[in-house]
Amino acid sequence: MLSALSAVHWLIWRDPRRRAENLLRFAEVEADGGRDLVRAAEVTRDPVLRKLFLKHALDEQRHADLFRSRGLALIRTLPRDTASGIAANWLTPGERGLDDLRVEEEGDAALLAFLHLSEASAAREFANYIAVLGADPPTRTVFENVLHDETFHMTYTRAQLDRVAPKGARRRIWMARLRRFWKAYLRLASGLAGLIGAIVLTLQYFIVLPLFAFHARRAAEKEAAGWSAVAPERNGRLDRQY
């Protein structure tokens, strides 16, 4: 299983264009995560956490810069118009930021538990990528740098969780884990629903709507270019949605 996974990782990271695109995407995600942490720092009433969250936010911003500059450097080595491969984004999630967490609505303990798990899984992912990036030392170095910070993030969030919730730390982490599963399920489910929706709508578009389309086009052809008068009764009528 593990070797199958690393084979997948190897495949994904082999192509330099996809590698560059992944790095640029990671840069966005890291910057996003950084903004969430800024928000966490602004919301918390705990001065120790505020300092740590701000430092953490700056780390994530630095990761964003590292990923971005490496991604750009890679892109510049590529011929201009090569088509990009099939984007396999979900196979390389990188760090997930705070996963759409509404920072304002979380207590410090819940947030720390959630952060701890996110950082741990990011650290695992990045270690996997490092293992298959032997052929690209600069990119590998970027990941090693980032991994170093992620390990720190993982550790400090756990230590702070013990401080702010000395009794319930383990329970908090389990709850955060359940929520992560639930979020992953939601992502999958809404992705699937979106796909089914798109298929049904596409069928509709081609089977049900051609007649309407024909009429819409005829109407469009008759429409004069330039000014249209605004009917006086339109001024001041506020009771209609249409």
Binding site: G194, A198, L201, L209, A216, Q241, Y242
Partner: peptide, 30 residues
């Protein structure tokens, strides 16, 4: 604004572009 009238414009636009407007149509509906 008038949301129904806006939807009317979005839908009509997708129909006028038939059959190229498929993407716009599914996006607009969703």
């Amino acid at each position: 604004e008038r949301p129904m009238l806006k939807f009317d414009r979005i839908l009509t636009t997708a129909l006028r572009a038939w059959p190229q407007g498929r993407g716009a149509f599914t996006h607009a509906m969703k």
